[in-house]
Amino acid sequence: MRIPSAIITLIAGMALVLLGQWVANDVNWLPVSASTNAPVYDELFRVLLAIGTMLLVGMTGVVVYSLIRFRRRDGDQQDGPPVEGNLSLELFWTAIPAVVVLFLGIYSYDIYDRMGGMTDLNAHGMDHHAAELASVRQSQPGDEERIWGGIAPASSNEAVLPVEVTALQFAFVFHYPEQNITSGELHVPSGQAVELRMKANDVIHAFWVPEFRIKQDIIPGQPTVLTFTANQTGDYPIVCAELCGPYHGGMRSHVVVDEPESFATWVETNTPATLS
């Protein structure tokens, strides 16, 4: 009995959707998620992975099937059918990618909004975060306007921990202005928003913590701000992600996410004695 091709297509399509779902939900390609915006990111990644798997496996399947099913037998000098096009088919595969891409665009816009990326730093001055920002600006009177890193603004209810980051060839230097601590590695309390005020003096560097899913270039002449909230204690790598010279590969550091109590202890032990 011949099975109608419509049914085969339907079954193949359902199998593809199931495969995409399975890959997206049960295969883990990403490192540990350790910040509040990482799960949001992972959600987008799973959607992209599901759609991508379906497309790749589907296209591969059709090409391989064609190569086997329609291969030329020895001595066959005939041509295929003279089909030059099919308007409705072409409209179909113009419309489908357009819809998928549009959906992805809107969806990633939403994700980006939830990460806080659409918030302009200047618009921040309007909301109740203004006080902190004003204090930032007052504490650095000569400083020019900073460029918003575009990810994860501080949730405005809680206190923000400011950290000044200086990137240079080939290290990150972290300075806690309120505690007057200078450190080669970043210590942050779990659950509290951290605002990195970043500047570079020599060349462009980039601050990347894979477990936080955030990255921001540190550009000489254009100070940037990056805010995140870590929520998983641990020791994660900080990686420079912009070619910055011969030792670029060695320009790494750590971010240690502590429970608030242990962070307080760390601050206490590291605060210079002159302050107390």
């Binding site: 987008l44 990633s108 980006y112 990810i151 990347w208 955030i214 921001q216």
Partner: peptide
């Protein structure tokens, strides 16, 4: 997609 790119850019 910006949020995706922010993680994997320059990697």
């Amino acid at each position: 997609q910006v949020p995706f790119d922010v993680h994997v850019h320059d990697t």
